[in-house]
Amino acid sequence: MYTKEVMDHFMNPRNVGEMPDADGIGVEGNPVCGDVMKLFIKVKDDRIVDAKFQTFGCGAAIAVSSMITEMVKGKTLDEALEISKEKVAEALGGLPPQKMHCSNLGADALRKAIEDYKSKKRQN
């Protein structure tokens, strides 16, 4: 049911864990529904230099989280905002249709993390 890429990112997830000094944090989903993703980003000169995640959810949710942390590293904030759910799914070689929306939380969590970073920056 899952592609090789999904299974690889699920079994060997990249960039796992908390980031105590994160510049932006985005949380998407709800444990009541079954999937929650927490995404941490480190930003330098409007560029994402590091990303980490913690995810409660199925194989797809974990693979999506791992993949998006890989995709955002090195991207400017504007470039990162271009990453859509579809692009994450594509990078994973596709997701089962029923997982396309519920478990594909990466792009939304990323958007929230970038918003969080920008609002913190404005406050400073």
Partner: peptide, 15 residues
């Protein structure tokens, strides 16, 4: 991997 590894605190965050 789980954001709830230490417990269910903040259960409702994320909408």
């Amino acid at each position: 991997l789980s954001p709830y590894a230490k417990g269910w605190e903040g259960l409702e965050e994320g909408g």
